[in-house]
């Protein structure tokens, strides 16, 4: 269990983290969502003891990171954004080094390394130089490193950045697998990724927690305002009123007008699926829909929608 209370971190005069508090329970997968520079990495660095906070308190399984760093760190496996890999070592040598650092007893060291390699599917590259591995493999070696010593909490900072789509899928699967046995905190700036994996999401922006909720609730909240982009063969005036009249549609905005085609941005409540009603409304006035696209909400949208008062 991780308890973070009132965490503040200054870099000079700049406040990177201002008063974050949250608790992670055993077995949870916590997504840490926020745009770049929001303070995700700083928070994680502080939790893992790489940085110390300007003020605030962090305990891991009851051990204070500042006061009992060794006991606290024993319970954490950390993969920073740039995996801490020695390129001049082979995978096995590297994991052996990490397990020595983590003071894994000598007799179970070998077995544990083999188990971990099996878990993250890198057994086939154990004898290869990390320098010669692909980005995806390197990331997995990085995760293997966090698993050595069998810590309860695993903290992953942007584990999917820079991976190709297939690797991203594999990585997500891996994290899901790990979540069965570990408490996981991982950060991302991609909403869908967090939605796909996490039980719970904490959104931070400008060093502050903007939202802290189970994923399902957050999804609902985010879907509270959905954007669609429609390309219609009509004029804006002709479609504006009929669309507004559709229940659930909040606003209609003209985005583009060209060669008798218009592109309209339509914002609707997430609670109701307006797509069908919109289709019929347009059909009634004989406006053909050439393109109908739902827009993924941007992080900015999420922040505005979350912070805007609930309807």
């Amino acid at each position: 269990m991780i308890e973070v209370s009132n965490l503040v971190k200054f870099y000079g005069d700049k406040k990177a983290v201002s008063g974050i508090s949250f608790t992670v329970n055993q077995g949870e997968i916590l997504g840490f969502l926020g745009p770049n520079g929001a303070g995700k990495t700083t928070t994680m660095n502080i939790i893992t003891g790489f940085l110390s906070a300007t003020s605030g308190r962090i305990t891991i399984n009851g051990y204070d990171v500042l006061e009992q760093p060794e006991m606290a760190k024993k319970n954490i496996g950390y993969l920073p954004e740039q995996p801490p890999l020695f390129l001049d070592m082979t995978v096995y040598e590297y994991l052996e080094y990490v397990s020595e650092l983590k003071k894994v007893p000598k007799d179970i060291r070998k077995k544990q390394i083999t188990d971990v390699m099996k878990m993250v599917h890198i057994g086939n590259v154990s004898g290869r130089l990390i320098h010669n591995l692909s980005k995806g493999y390197r990331q997995r070696v990085g995760i293997a490193q966090t698993l050595i010593g069998n810590p309860e909490v695993i903290i992953l900072d942007e584990p999917t950045v820079g991976l190709d789509p297939n690797q991203v899928i594999e990585m997500r699967k891996l994290i899901c697998d790990l979540s069965k046995t570990h408490t996981i905190i991982f950060s991302s700036h991609i909403l869908s990724e967090v939605q796909a994996i996490c039980d719970r999401v904490i959104i931070i922006n400008n060093g502050k927690i903007v939202a802290d909720a189970p994923t399902m609730e957050l999804s609902a909240r985010v879907e509270g305002s959905v954007h669609y982009s429609l390309t219609l063969e009509s004029s804006f005036n002709a479609v504006q009123m009929p669309l507004r009249a559709v229940p659930g549609v909040r606003s209609v905005t003209l985005m583009q007008e060209k060669d008798g085609l218009i592109q309209v941005d339509l914002m609707a409540d997430g609670d109701l699926d307006v797509r069908k009603s919109v289709f019929f409304a347009l059909a009634r006035i004989n406006v053909p829909i050439l393109e109908y696209r739902s827009l993924a909400p941007s992080l900015e949208d999420i922040f505005t929608s979350i912070t805007s008062p609930r309807k």
Partner: peptide, 10 residues
């Protein structure tokens, strides 16, 4: 960035 290991290890 491997220095992180030294800081975050027990």
């Amino acid at each position: 960035g491997t220095i992180v290991l030294l800081y975050t290890m027990p």
